Every structure is written in C-alpha cells, then in structure tokens.
Computed example of a mutant assay.
Amino acid sequence: MKKGIKSFTLIEMLIVLAIIAVLILLFVPNLVKEKDKVKETGSRAIVKVVESQAELYRIDHTGEVKLSELLSNGLISQQQADNYNDYYAKNKNESRSIPN
C-alpha cells in the first residue's frame, strides 16, 4: 500500500508568491523614502560640522571665514565642502553662513 506524499499544490504556491509580491510592493517605496531621510540627515550633520569648524576658525582668526580657507587649512575635507555646497544648492531657501 502506497502512502500519498503531502506537498503544496501549485495553487498554494502561487498564492504564497502573490502575498510575498504584495508585501514587497508595499515595503519597497517606504524603504526608498527612509533612505532619502537618512541621506538628508547625514547632509545636515555635515553642514553642522562645517559650520562648527568655521566657528572655531573665527575664534583664532580675524576676518571673514570662507569655505576655501577651511579647506586650505585642513579643517574640512573636500568631500565635506562638496556636501556643504550640495546641501545649500538643494535648499536654496535656507541662509548660508559660510561663503565659498
């Protein structure tokens, strides 16, 4: 006497795949939004670092602080300067405290 092997039917497998596909469609847009929020938060953090370095530079020097001076003195990296400029290029309504 043969015993029947229990297994999933094709319809059950398709239902499971459909549920997984729907869940993926629901979660992927949210992940993209969160990625953008994280990137924006990182950009704001870099802006604060650059502005803090500018304040420290003002304490030791007289005159106006420029981004190029911070770069040449090694107080910030080129990547930080680029991120600072990109942030204010995207957020044109915010006032910029350090000129180029």
Rank of each mutant, 00 (worst) to 15 (best):
D36E: 12
L71F: 05
I20M: 11
T41E: 11
M1C: 07
K3I: 10
S68R: 14
N93L: 06
N73P: 00
I59A: 14
K33Y: 08
K2R: 10
L71Y: 05
I15Q: 11
N91T: 03
L10F: 05
D86M: 05
I46A: 05
S43W: 02
Y87R: 04
L14W: 01
D86N: 09
Y84H: 06
A81R: 07
I19Y: 04
I46F: 02
Q79N: 09
L10R: 09
D36L: 08
A21I: 08
V38K: 08
R44S: 14
G63S: 11
K66F: 14
N91F: 06
N73I: 00
P29W: 03
E51F: 10
Y57Q: 04
R96Y: 02
I5G: 09
Y87P: 02
E94F: 10
S97K: 10
P29L: 08
Y87N: 04
L75P: 01
G4M: 08
N100A: 15
N73A: 15
N73Y: 11
G4H: 06
S97F: 07
S72V: 12
T41M: 10
R96W: 01
L17Q: 13
V50W: 12
A21P: 02
K92W: 03
L56K: 09
N30E: 15
N85M: 13
L70M: 09
Y88I: 05
R58Y: 02
D60C: 02
L67M: 07
S7Y: 06
H61D: 03
N100G: 09
I19K: 07
R96Q: 11
Q80F: 03
I5C: 06
D36C: 00
A81T: 11
T62V: 12
G63E: 07
I76S: 05
I24P: 01
D82Q: 11
L17M: 15
V50T: 14
I19A: 13
E55L: 10
D82A: 09
K35W: 04
K3F: 05
L23P: 00
Y87K: 04
E34G: 00
I19T: 09
A18W: 05
I20C: 10
G42Q: 12
G42K: 14
D86P: 00
T41P: 00
L67R: 03
I20A: 13
S43P: 00
Q78A: 15
L67A: 04
I59G: 01
T9I: 02
A89M: 04
A54H: 07
Q79K: 15
G74D: 05
V22D: 02
V16M: 15
Q78D: 12
N83S: 13
N91L: 03
D36F: 08
E40M: 11
S43F: 04
I15W: 05
G42Y: 06
E40Y: 14
E40W: 03
I15Y: 06
F8Q: 05
R44I: 02
T62I: 10
L75S: 06
V50K: 13
A81Y: 08
V16L: 12
N93V: 08
V38C: 01
F27P: 00
I24L: 10
I46C: 03
K90R: 11
T41G: 01
Y57G: 02
I98L: 05
V32S: 01
S95A: 15
Y88W: 06
I98Q: 04
E69R: 12
L70Y: 09
L23S: 15
S72C: 00
S95K: 15
I11P: 01
A89F: 14
I11G: 05
V65W: 13
K3Y: 03
L26R: 13
A18C: 08
S68Q: 14
A54S: 15
I24W: 07
K92H: 06
